[in-house]
């Protein structure tokens, strides 16, 4: 079966930031795939290249070497099958929450009334029905994230690329959104590449957790299948002994890298 996303010996080198400096080898010889319908999480120390990996999958960045394939086809230009939820704020400041959510539909020429109807449905789904007419600067950080999630999901992409989507949310909202995402993913068999710095979140959501090494020359140093039963409740599953066992095994690998990554960003 062809994978939804396949990184084949991919490397990324960023040009030197100042003159005379050495180029930054962000990602080196990375091979990784997300099967159709699979939920894969990537964890790794800060600055190791997680967002860079997603940009590759989105087609926003071309690899310096190697190939990215989407459903078997080499990716050239933007990945039309993917929806991308960015790590930083990406809402259009001159559009209301509703108009932001319906933006993708408008680009596809969906009639206004239908787009608004679907937009309101999605806003309600992320708990923001009351904030439809607000502009981004009138929303809190967590509310903006939820609008961004509705904006990405409304166009029903086959592949979901999510870059720390829930890190700005409080614990309760976060668990609601995580369960919502799981329900959606299970119903529609989307393929998800999910980035987080929260190992517990990664385990609770995923079929597979990939640990990246600290940069430079970031590459996967461990892949852990998560064979916890589905459907899961993200809050309850954290208390099971299986969960704790997996957490311990992955953390043993991740801990050293986090320390290395920390030393690197501070020196």
């Amino acid at each position: 079966m062809t994978a939804a996303i396949e990184f084949d010996q991919v490397s990324v080198v960023f040009p030197a930031r100042e003159r005379g400096g050495a180029p930054w080898r962000a990602i080196a010889h990375t091979s990784l795939s997300v099967e159709v319908g699979e939920f894969v999480s990537v964890v790794g120390p800060t600055g190791c290249g997680k967002s860079t990996l997603l940009n590759l999958a989105a087609g926003l960045l071309a690899p310096s070497a190697g190939t990215v394939r989407v459903f078997g086809q080499p990716l050239i230009g933007i990945n039309r099958r993917a929806g991308y939820m960015f790590q930083t704020d990406a809402l259009l400041p001159w559009r209301t929450a509703l108009d932001n959510v319906t933006f993708g539909l408008e680009l596809r020429g969906v009639p206004r009334t239908e787009a608004n109807e679907r937009g309101r449905y999605w806003l309600a789904k992320v708990g923001l029905a009351h904030a439809a007419e607000r502009y981004p600067h009138q929303l809190s950080g967590g509310m903006k994230k939820r609008v961004a999630m509705a904006q990405t999901l409304i166009v029903e992409p086959d592949i979901l690329l999510m870059d720390e989507p829930f890190s700005a949310l409080d614990v309760q909202t976060r668990q609601l959104m995580e369960n919502e995402l799981l329900a959606l993913w299970q119903a529609e068999r989307r393929s998800v590449l999910f980035i987080t710095h929260d190992l517990e979140e990664a385990i609770a959501l995923s079929d597979r957790v990939v640990v990246l090494s600290a940069g430079p020359d970031t590459h996967p140093i461990g892949e852990f299948p998560i064979d916890l039963a589905r459907p899961r409740d993200v809050a309850e599953i954290r208390l099971t002994p299986e969960f704790l066992g997996i957490h311990e095994r992955i953390w043993a690998v991740l801990r050293d890298e986090v320390l290395k990554g920390y030393v690197q960003t501070t020196t």
Binding site: L60, I78, G83, Y84, F86, Q151, T152
Partner: peptide
Amino acid sequence: SPVILANARMLGANRRQLLRH
């Protein structure tokens, strides 16, 4: 913002739509 541009492109905007929106 390059992120807003990238977001619009991922949501399917072509060159003309980027200009307009």
